[in-house]
Amino acid sequence: MQAGVAEQVAQGIRRILAPNPSAMTGPGTNTYILGHGAGVIVVDPGPAEEQHLATILAALDPTDTVTAILVTHAHNDHSAAAPRLSALTAAPVLAFGDARSGRSPLMQRLADSGFAGGGEGADLSFRPDRQLTDGTVLPCGDTLLRVIHTPGHMGGHICLGFGDVLLSGDHAMGWASSLISPPDGDMAAYMASLDRLMSERWSLMLPGHGPAVPEVAARLQALSDHRRAREAEVLAALRPAPATPTDLTRRIYHDIPPGLHAAAIRNVLAHLIDLAARNVVTCQDIPGPDTIFTRTDSL
């Protein structure tokens, strides 16, 4: 993968890597161009970076007409370039909603209580021209593009089925697990969405970051197993005494780069909020990094 170069990664799918590598984005954000000719769809135009926009436009054939710009979720590294690309192509921006859309009642109550996200780059200015719903089907050349609502990483996150190719956004990737940071992220919803994706057969997975994943079923299962193992670690670490997500993260995560420590705390917190909703743990205050959680079987 090389930033600024359009490459064909599957039949009818071109990928362009944005020049925004980081600890959270890996090599950068993947922008996908689906189809050829009169019905081209651009998925995740990426960060507001003029050179990346120029590369997207240069990758289009003279006969290509962009008819839609799809955004899998409203994080800046996926959505920020959408308004500018829309202005340049006259194509509408489509998404499930804005950065606050799709939250579960529990996550909305957390947000209403004053609990905020961890600064993961939500694009609070993002507004799609058209809102998509689960099951929406869009024509794209000779193939239909199917919208799959997959809350978890964000409430309004969507994956896309392009035939039997899964464009998975940030829900599932090959190089890392997804960040789940409440109230934008929801562990219970993430696991349910993962189960839904696992119920279908896919020939290839194209994530929002990192390389293509050919063994889709195995990777989705591995991600599910990883989350269940992490939940077990959280509960085991909580057995000796009540603790905060920050304390638990120090016990569970070993040798992670300092830049990922805050994200790890949010993932542990997401597990604890899910466990609290299932009455496996409890806490007295609004959940946060320094809230003390207790196993209910120790009360």
Rank of each mutant, 00 (worst) to 15 (best):
L17F: 02
L235W: 06
P151A: 08
I158C: 12
A54C: 09
I16H: 01
D64E: 11
G46V: 00
V9G: 05
A116G: 12
M154K: 07
A122K: 07
P242Y: 09
A276I: 12
A74L: 04
P105K: 10
N20L: 14
T249C: 15
D255I: 10
M205Y: 06
A217I: 05
R251K: 11
P47Y: 06
S101R: 10
D255R: 14
P214A: 11
N279E: 15
E49F: 04
P207G: 04
G39D: 05
M198V: 07
S104C: 09
L260I: 09
R278T: 11
A189S: 12
A270M: 11
R266P: 01
L110K: 07
E231H: 13
R201T: 12
A87H: 09
F96L: 14
E49Q: 14
S113E: 08
R228S: 09
L110G: 03
H52D: 03
A54V: 06
G259C: 11
F293L: 10
P139S: 11
F126E: 00
L248I: 08
L197Q: 06
R266N: 03
A18C: 12
C140N: 05
E200D: 14
I33M: 07
A91C: 12
S79C: 07
P45R: 04
P240T: 07
T296N: 13
A263N: 12
I148A: 00
A95K: 06
S125D: 15
T136Y: 04
G155Y: 05
N76K: 14
G46N: 03
T291H: 12
Q2I: 14
A188F: 01
R266G: 00
M191L: 15
L238D: 02
H271G: 04
I292P: 04
P19D: 15
A264W: 02
L272A: 05
L272F: 10
P19Y: 12
V5K: 13
F126H: 03
M187F: 05
A68H: 06
A122C: 13
L160E: 00
P45W: 02
L223Q: 02
R14C: 01
A87M: 07
D123Y: 08
N20G: 13
A232T: 15
D285N: 13
S79D: 01
T89D: 03
M187Q: 06
I180P: 00
I265N: 01
G156R: 02
P27C: 06
L220Q: 02
P240Y: 03
S199W: 10
R196K: 11
P83H: 12
A217G: 10
A276G: 12
P92A: 10
Q11S: 13
N30T: 06
S181N: 08
